[in-house]
Design a protein around this nucleic acid. Structure first.
Lengths: 342, 342
DNA sequence: CTAGGCTATTGACTCGAGTAGATCCCGGTG
DNA sequence: CACCGGGATCTACTCGAGTCAATAGCCTAG
């Protein structure tokens, strides 16, 4: 440390700019830029050393706002999710942040709390902040593309099963995933399989419902009871209570999210039934929580990390003029014990 | 091209600037600023109407980067957490985002993944991005304040039990919370209470360990076995296996986080024991997951929303020159069933 | 010894918005 | 009629960094 006097701890230190570095190093400001950005012109090694030194001594950090202004890019991506405290979105956010950080982008997070007006506000807000792209996990199943269009930012629709022409979108093959899970349940000998379906504002039927139905039909089984409720733990709990009380009580249930699966388990336990003995369960998402429930949930895993990377790549590609596209990823069944496997 | 047809959907529309608005409205750029910011000078109502009109027609959005450059503030806060997919931090992030949004701030999220080097990088990165403040949930229990000092940004240390002079910090009374939980367990008649302690890089003892010990001493009970492991589900699982195998197996366990509590439950279930019959459990945090485990966990709830608000307020206060301070919040015991209550 | 050809460096302009200071225009006074 | 007050508006500079065109050295070939 400097043996001389240290400056007062809380003196409002003026921010160090490129000019200060230039003066200290005895060069022009242009050279400082060239050193910092390694280009676009070369700098003599000796000069570079002087500049690096000055940067270190003064503790210079380029002002990101100035940079963003000049370059027209803030190196920032926006992520809009319904609720970050939902484990699935938390997982997703983490993966997105990782992918973005790898490419030098920062991530601005905002929650829409299942509220369309808030979702719109958030998008507009991000647009005003000059983010380079928006990743939107809409509260709607058919998001209102208008806001995105008028905001005129590259965007990716997440969790999107169907193609929205002119937009990047990313999703998983819901139907195939659900089918595989229900088939697995059928493989355990179940003939009456219920569905705890998440509610969903859309005209078209959710792929998970389709997959459930298909698997049943293929096996020549009748449709089990369906209960619609929120994609949440309480939603699953409620669905569980209803399903258990239904006239033709199923012996297995497929839940359209892990959160519902968790809620389901609670309802079943409270009814004094055993899982998977009295009631088998399988769910959808593949979150960490599903691994540590009791019993551990057999679940359809979404390739979250891969999807996040693809989403970020699509955004970065869009700013380079690439065409928007719709990508669907495959899921994978994670067999644990709630289905009846040992 | 036909001038009447709409422009090609993906024509790289040039961004609308203040100048465009000024030209369209037939005024100077200064007036546009005055209208947008409602000051610092007055504008005649008629002129204002013209400008508002132009803004609407052209779809003008002020460039946040330019604004940030000129004003030296980006209206942005940074949040650094070890891992957003940990439910506790997810919950916290949500609360922080809410509080920040209420005050017009956006939130930049970054994960440090329990990696000190990454934590430092993230902080520096945020500093370069001119965030107005940083909320830091450090991976260390005694964060290296040096980075924050040299970065010279207002900051708040989260989850901080002890006072770091010159820094804002926010935490809960860990010892008191742990004590209350252990006392509750004692109230159920347990005399051998184990501790699943999260590992913690610090010289001093974690408050939760202190609280556990105090409660035992006060009741004249001997210390039960302690197992140290990560603050995670697998950490708790491991701790559970060890505690169950220990020579003087306890009849109740206090876990220092909900995640550990969840892991504990799994280990106990796998051993074929009943909770709370054979083994009672209580944990710490109050996350949503603890409510839906089986059985639901009795846990010490942290006032996450209040703390988040206080943290954001401290940051905003700091930019106004307020003195840094250390605040400790009380916890509250949430009695559910894992402790033995009906 | 000078022209030519390099390379390293610099000066100066730019991005878009905030705002101080100058200017303009109007009605009202003396 | 000249002058002044005062509100409305405009001109011009600023923030910090990127980068191009111009320049200053300097070495070598002729």
């Amino acid at each position: 440390m400097d043996p001389m006097t240290t400056p007062a701890a809380h003196a409002p230190r003026a921010p160090v700019t490129r000019k200060d570095v230039a003066r200290y190093a005895g060069v022009s400001t242009a050279v400082v830029s060239y050193v910092v950005n390694r280009g676009p012109k070369k700098v003599a090694p000796a000069t570079e050393a002087k500049v690096q030194d000055a940067i270190r001594v003064l503790g210079y950090r380029p002002n990101a706002a100035a940079r963003a202004l000049k370059l027209g890019s803030s190196e920032t991506l926006g992520l809009v999710v319904p609720d970050i405290s939902n484990p699935f979105f938390a997982l997703f956010s983490h993966a997105v942040e990782d992918a973005a950080a790898d490419l030098g982008y920062a991530l601005v997070l905002s929650n829409s709390d299942g509220n369309l007006a808030k979702e719109r506000r958030n998008i507009r807000n991000l647009a005003a902040r000059q983010v380079d792209g928006v990743l939107l996990a809409s509260v709607l199943f058919e998001p209102d593309l208008e806001v995105l269009e008028t905001a005129d930012i590259p965007s990716v629709l997440l969790n999107q099963e169907r193609d929205a022409p002119g937009f990047n979108s990313i999703g998983v093959d819901l139907a195939a995933g659900a089918r595989i899970a229900v088939q697995h349940l059928i493989g355990h000998g179940h003939t009456n399989i219920g569905l705890a379906m998440g509610t969903n504002v859309s005209d078209s039927t959710d792929g998970r419902e389709v997959g459930w139905r298909e698997a049943l039909q293929e096996a020549g089984l009748p449709e089990g009871p369906i209960v619609y409720s929120a994609f949440t733990r309480p939603g699953g709990y409620l669905a569980g209570q209803r399903l258990l009380a239904s006239v033709n009580r199923p012996t297995a249930i497929f839940a359209t999210s892990d959160m519902q699966g968790i809620g389901l388990l609670r309802a079943i336990h409270e009814a004094g039934l055993a899982v998977p003995g009295d009631m088998a369960v399988a769910s959808f998402d593949g979150s960490a929580e599903s691994e540590y429930s009791w019993p551990p949930l057999t679940t359809v895993e979404q390739p979250v990390a891969v999807m996040a990377e693809a989403a970020v790549a699509a955004l970065v590609g869009a700013s380079r003029g690439e065409k928007p596209r719709h990508r669907i990823f495959p899921t994978q069944l994670h067999v644990r014990q709630s289905c009846g496997c040992p």
